[in-house]
């Protein structure tokens, strides 16, 4: 059995708790236990708060990392934004002793001290490295018969020199996870393009942000894709709720394409129900292939 602290962030617990439920359940089936990270906050969003004030960004991110450091547990996240902030902050603190001193000086009032004894992981790493494709395949009881468009998002892979998951140009890790469920991962134009939400663009200029999303859905439709999967709660929101907003903003027809977080897809393949995975609470309803 392995134990991790789950850094929830904002969108997972506060908008898409189905991601949280699905992730904890799937990991538990493979003997990975999840512990609460009590008192955590917003990561805070790397492209948003990092664009406003890097000192505040680093200090809040370091505080979140330190909460887990003091529990002695590695952390997992279900959002590329959270991964971006926590993993980057941890990387900077491990590389630069002067930053570590500055952070500790500013965290000591709360009784916290960053030591740097833990790792920040994306849940995709737990699925791929801790569990592995072989065990995921063995656990499939209800294989998916569907064409899936994988959306990687940005901050899981990039910057590749900091993240350390290899090239960001031709990744396969999520495609392999999708195919372990029996589904087919289908390539589409601009598969690796950003969803449009990051860097504060969704907040400041929704129309520009949704234009990214719209282009991705148009390409996925052309490729005959049934549903899209992602490893990021923020992309997930942009792609699920975004489809309703695209209809409102541009007056076009709904794409009606179901959006699933990677652990929700894996949960379905393991025989979990649409309802217990929170999939029936999405803005875009599941189609028949994803109703169990």
């Amino acid at each position: 059995m392995k134990e991790y602290a789950y850094f929830l962030g904002c969108i997972t617990p506060n908008r898409y708790p189905g991601i949280e439920a699905a992730t904890v359940k799937v990991l538990k089936k493979f003997d990975i236990e999840t512990r609460d990270l009590d008192g955590a906050s917003c990561c805070p969003a790397p492209g948003v708060f990092g664009s406003f004030d890097l000192n505040t960004w680093l200090l809040i991110a370091a505080r979140n990392v330190t909460l887990a450091d003091m529990m002695g547990l590695d952390v997992y996240v279900t959002c590329n934004g959270c991964y971006g902030s926590l993993q980057e902050a941890d990387h900077l603190l491990k590389e630069k002793p002067e930053l570590k001193d500055w952070v500790n000086e500013n965290l000591k009032d709360e009784g916290l001290e960053y030591k740097g004894n833990i790792e920040i992981k994306h849940v995709v790493e737990l699925l791929y490295d801790d569990i592995g494709i072989k065990r995921l395949k063995e656990a499939v009881v209800a294989p998916l018969d569907a064409k899936i468009g994988v959306h990687y998002g940005c901050h899981f892979l990039k910057p590749s020199a900091v993240r350390g998951h290899g090239s960001s140009e031709r990744p396969t890790i999520l495609d392999e996870l999708v195919e372990a469920t029996g589904a087919e991962s289908v390539d589409y134009k601009d598969k690796l393009m950003c969803c449009g939400a990051g860097g504060g663009v969704r907040t400041r200029d929704l129309e520009v942000s949704l234009t990214f999303t719209k282009q991705k859905f148009e390409s996925m439709k052309k490729a005959g894709i049934d549903a899209t999967i992602n490893p990021c709660a923020f992309c997930h929101l942009q792609m699920d709720r975004g489809q309703v907003e695209i209809k409102e903003k541009f007056g076009e027809e709904f794409f009606n394409m179901p959006v699933l977080f990677i652990t929700q897809l894996i949960g379905l393949s393991m025989g979990m129900s649409t309802e217990e995975l929170g999939l029936n609470a999405h803005a875009i309803p599941m189609t028949e292939k994803f109703i169990r």
Binding site: H155, S168, C194, G198, G200, R204, V208, F212
Partner: peptide, 12 residues
């Protein structure tokens, strides 16, 4: 300058 989504494609 606020239209960058911080996708890191240029950086890479």
């Amino acid at each position: 300058i606020w239209l960058c989504t911080t996708c890191y494609t240029c950086y890479e």
